[in-house]
Amino acid sequence: MSKLSNLDIEEIFRQDAQKIIDARKRSKVIHATSDIKASGNEVEHSVRDFLRSRMPSNFYVGHGHVVDCNQQTSPQFDVLISDNTFIPILLRTNDSTEYFPCESLYAIGEIKSTYNKSEKPIEKFCENLKLVKENMKREEVFNTAYKGEFSDSTLMRDMILQKNNKVLNAIYSFMLFVDSEKFDISEFNDCYKKYGNKYLPNHIILLDRGVVFFGKITESQMIFERYPEYDENEENEWILSAFGLNEEKEKAGNHLGFLYYNLLEHMNSSLLEPINLMPYFNSLFTGRKSKMIKIKNSV
């Protein structure tokens, strides 16, 4: 008699996580040759390959810089995810560095093979996020039907779409450390005091240890708040926790799955309008009237 079989989701993500861990092992071998850039690229490539293999085709995964309509350009990011249905990137250089229009951006990520407190990785990422969120032109689009609440200003668009996000074009940010044995929570606390929730990454994935998330733990469940900067619940706080009930199994796959789930939920709950490209190209179309020549067509 035939019966239904089970798909082991945990094992699938465990294998994906192992590929990233193996990439770190290769990076250590390469690092020993003093090729530090190539060493770092091993892990970054592995994470981006994982995301590309799991993302629907309407999302684009790359790396590089964010550009706004005033041509201001961000520092380089290891992972950038954008809308692939219109203009995912403006430019790709010969070394595969890409330039992403600010309005098309869904998510920003930073990948580190090893946590090294002396490099202040969380603080540096917070500084770069602050540059993007504070100085680059990208107006927030608020959900006028958030939590099903309607008013005179509620848009028909939001009533029909019924998205879950308070800000429809919020940027989701994350960090991923493959080896976090020396992770020092004091650096995170210092960044929280300095930057608050607005410029901290939404989640920090410590692949071998757990996940840093914002929320609360009750007697029966963990409650996650995906967007700490917009959260007004004073009961929520930052928590570091490992995931997985089976103590004998590696947890890295669970932590990677947590990142994947939150990225998908974020993008499916977001709304990005088509980009107005004219501001990006205005400078190309500027001319002097005195230099213009009228062409008369003969009949």
Results as ranks from 00 to 15, higher is better:
Arg14Gly: 12
Ile9Glu: 11
Thr85Leu: 13
Phe13Pro: 03
Phe258Arg: 01
Glu149Gln: 08
Phe174Thr: 03
Lys194Met: 04
His45Trp: 10
Asp190Ala: 15
Ser82Glu: 05
Leu207Arg: 08
Glu265Asp: 11
Arg138Trp: 02
Phe100Glu: 02
Leu51Ser: 02
Asp68Asn: 12
Arg226Phe: 00
Ala107Arg: 01
Val29Pro: 02
Asn84Phe: 01
Met222Tyr: 06
Pro88Lys: 03
Tyr99Asp: 11
Pro279Asn: 02
Gly244Met: 10
Cys69Arg: 08
Asn6Phe: 14
Leu245Tyr: 08
Gly210Ser: 08
Phe77Arg: 12
Lys37Cys: 02
Tyr199Gly: 07
Lys193Cys: 13
Leu206Val: 04
Lys117Trp: 00
Asn202Gln: 09
Ser27Arg: 04
Tyr106Thr: 04
Val167Thr: 13
Val178His: 00
Glu44Gln: 15
Ile36Leu: 13
Arg54Pro: 01
Phe213Glu: 03
Arg48Tyr: 08
Asn197Glu: 07
Asn236Ile: 03
Leu264Ser: 01
Leu131Ser: 06
Leu168Ile: 02
Ser53Ile: 08
Glu265His: 08
Ile204Cys: 01
Glu235Thr: 12
Met55Glu: 10
Leu277Cys: 08
Ile293Ser: 04
Ile223Arg: 07
Val79Ala: 12
Thr154Trp: 03
Asp35Pro: 03
Val61Gln: 08
Ile30Thr: 15
Asp35Glu: 13
Ser241Tyr: 08
Cys191Ser: 05
Leu155Glu: 12
Phe150Ser: 09
Leu51Glu: 05
Lys130Gln: 15
Thr286Phe: 04
Asp190Gly: 06
Ser39Met: 05
Leu259Ser: 05
Ile111Tyr: 04
Ile275Gln: 11
Lys198Cys: 05
Leu272Arg: 15
Pro274Cys: 05
Phe86Cys: 09
Ala170Gly: 05
Phe142Gly: 02
Lys19Met: 14
Asn233Met: 10
Asp68Phe: 06
Met1Ser: 09
Lys133Cys: 13
Gly253Asp: 08
Ser269Thr: 10
Arg52Ile: 13
Asp16Thr: 01
Arg209Gly: 01
Ile295Ala: 10
Leu129Arg: 00
Val132Lys: 03
Ser74Gln: 10
Gly215Pro: 00
Leu277Asp: 00
Ser113Ala: 14
Phe100Leu: 07
Lys251Glu: 11
Arg157Met: 07
Arg54Leu: 10
Leu277Ile: 14
Tyr195Asn: 09
Ala32Gly: 08
Leu240Asp: 00
Asn169Met: 03
Asp190Glu: 15
Glu181Ile: 07
Ala23Ser: 15
